[in-house]
């Protein structure tokens, strides 16, 4: 009997150890926070249907020194490109604890605005140079947005694609949840002026004139998806898809449709 009890105690102890390790591992996410989209009235699609309307603002930076979810110094990899939350006019939110995992409600319209502060090059797969999966398969592009005066320095244009040789990054939502329809949204994010980006970086800041893309998507059933950038820039790694590209919370995150 004593042996059986002692064996049982070993089992309990063993599971305790495993549970402890498991909790530690599960908690060790790079960016465990979630950002919910902001409510913004209703939206009427071109086909006449109305949806509850939400908005999300994001920035894409050439490095991680903006703070946000990577912490004050830019975290473990201050030189890696990172996406993060943006203020109403594309300002960096330096105190934000979250920044790459988003929660949006099901069967709603979400308008996403992305300011892109990095430069770019010719995209590897020009499939991703087109706007796909948004309302009308279009997006509104402002080539130069003045972050000081909060105005469009150049005119806003409706685009279905951007030139393949001027892509900075992309915002691509994909992955199969259990929903009947697949989710796939991909919007190319144009590059900002290379010289201005470099000059600003040398002074530890970001260009005054990022590009700005605005688009609206209609979410479907509930589910968990992911988003990531589909223009690899992990220099020095195989197919440039290593390092920052392969680490969550820099150029990838979770996209959760719930509620």
């Amino acid at each position: 009997m004593k042996r059986i009890l002692a064996a049982l105690a070993t089992v309990v102890l063993g599971f305790g150890v495993i549970a402890g390790i498991g909790t530690y591992v599960a908690a060790a996410k790079n960016d465990s926070g979630l950002t919910s989209a902001t409510a913004a009235g209703t939206f009427t699609a071109p086909d006449g249907k109305t949806y509850p309307h939400y908005t999300l603002n994001m920035n894409v930076y050439p490095n991680s020194t903006f703070g946000g979810h990577h912490g004050a110094g830019g975290g473990a990899h201050p030189d890696w490109v990172s996406y993060g939350l943006a203020g109403e006019h594309g300002e960096p939110l330096t105190e934000a604890a979250t920044g790459t995992n988003f929660v949006v409600p099901a069967h709603s319209a979400v308008t996403i605005t992305i300011w892109q502060y990095d430069s770019g090059e010719t995209i590897t797969n020009d499939f991703f140079a087109k706007v796909r999966g948004t309302v009308g398969n279009t997006a509104t592009l402002v080539q130069r947005y003045d972050t000081k005066t909060h105005t469009n320095a150049t005119e806003a244009k409706t685009v279905t694609q951007i030139p393949s040789d001027g892509v900075g990054h992309t915002f691509t939502i994909h992955g199969l949840a259990d929903a009947k329809n697949q989710v796939f949204v991909s919007v190319p994010l144009p590059m900002s002026n290379d010289d201005e980006v470099t000059a600003a970086e040398e002074e530890g800041g970001f260009t005054q004139f990022p590009t700005m893309m605005t688009f609206t998507i209609i979410t479907g059933d509930e589910g968990e998806y992911v988003w990531n950038c589909e223009f690899p820039c992990g220099d020095g790694t195989v197919a440039r898809f290593g390092s920052a590209m392969s680490t969550m919370s820099y150029m990838s995150g979770h996209w959760i449709v719930k509620g």
């Binding site: 994909h174 992955g175 199969l176 329809n181 697949q182 998806y225 992911v226 898809f241 392969s246 990838s252």
Partner: peptide, 16 residues
Amino acid sequence: RCAELCGLLHAYMQNK
């Protein structure tokens, strides 16, 4: 479905 481990988001490399 993608059936060969291809990195971080292999599990999500699926479409209809």
